[in-house]
Design a protein around this nucleic acid. Structure first.
Ligand SMILES: [Mn+2]
Ligand SMILES: [Mn+2]
Ligand SMILES: [Zn+2]
Ligand SMILES: [Zn+2]
Lengths: 126, 126
DNA sequence: TTTTTAATGCAACTCAGTTGCAAAAATAAA
DNA sequence: TTTATTTTTGCAACTGAGTTGCATTAAAAA
C-alpha cells in the first residue's frame, strides 16, 4: 500500500510513541503537538501508523479514541487483542498484558473482542 | 431522586424498550421517534431511564451510544455487567448472557469491565 | 536537478451530544 | 375542579471529535 513518508511530523509522533508505554487520547495528542502540526495532520498520521501496524487504537470509556504503540504487530498481521485499562481517577490509560478469553456463542461467529477495564491505578489506589 | 414523569414521550420510549430484546443506537432512536419527539427529549429521556435502572447503555464499535432494556436493575442496584455483541454485517447489537471474568491486576483496583464482541450474527453467518 | 507522488495546512464541514430558556404538560396542593 | 408547583419539552444555538477538498509544500524517485 502507501509507502509512509518520513516527514518531520511523522518523526515527532513516532518518537513520542517510542517514549511511552501509556496510551494517549487523541485530544491530548492534538494538544501536545498543536504547535508542531495541524489537527488534521495528526489524525492522518495516526491513521497511517495504525494500518502500518506501528500503533493500535481503541476507545476509552467516553468513546474517545486512544492510541498506543504496538508490540508485535505489522501491516499484515495485527496481533493486538489485549484489554485496556483506564483509571477513573487520574485518567491514565494503558495496555494490559492479559489473554482475553473469547466466549463461544451459539450460531455466532465472533471475530473480535474488546475489553475495557476501569478502576483506579497503582498510584491512585490509596 | 427525581420522580420520573409519565409523559407521552416517556411512554413511547418505554414501550419500545419493552418490545425488543435488541439494543439500539441513539441515531436509530432519534430517527425512529423523529415525528413524535425532539432529539433533545430522547437524549434526556434515555438519561433518566438509565439512572432509574430501566435501561442500560454502552458504546458500540464506532463509539456510538447504544441502549437496551435492563433485566434486573434498579436505581440503587445496577447489576448489568455482561458483554455486548455487534454484528459487523447487519449491524444488529444485543446483550449477551455470559459472565465476564474480570482479571485481577497487581496494584490496580478494577471496578468495571466492558466487553464488546464483534462478528457475524446467526442470520449473517452463512 | 527535475519530475512525480505523498503529506500538510487551512478552513469549512459533519455529526453525536449538550444547553439555556421560554412554553407546555404533569403532578401536587388547595 | 381549580390553582400552584415542578418537571419536561421544543427549539435553536452551541460544543467537540473527527473528516474533507483543495491548493501548497515536502519527500522520494528518476
Ligand atoms: Mn493496547
Ligand atoms: Mn446489555
Ligand atoms: Zn490513576
Ligand atoms: Zn447480522
Amino acid at each position: 500500500m502507501g509507502v509512509i513518508r518520513n516527514t518531520k511530523s511523522v518523526q515527532l509522533v513516532t518518537e513520542f510513541f517510542n517514549s511511552t508505554k501509556e496510551a494517549i487520547g487523541v485530544v491530548d495528542l492534538v494538544e501536545k503537538f498543536s504547535e508542531q502540526m495541524n489537527k488534521s495532520t495528526i489524525y492522518r498520521i495516526l491513521d497511517r501508523l495504525e494500518d502500518e501496524g506501528k500503533v493500535h487504537a481503541f476507545l476509552g470509556v467516553n468513546g474517545l479514541k486512544h492510541y498506543a504503540k504496538c508490540k508485535d504487530c505489522s501491516h499484515t498481521e495485527h496481533v493486538d487483542v489485549h484489554p485496556h485499562f483506564q483509571c477513573t481517577s487520574c485518567g491514565k490509560v494503558e495496555c494490559v498484558s492479559y489473554e482475553i478469553s473469547i466466549p463461544k456463542l451459539p450460531n455466532k461467529n465472533i471475530a473480535q473482542a474488546q475489553l475495557l477495564l476501569t478502576g483506579t491505578c497503582e498510584r491512585c489506589t490509596s
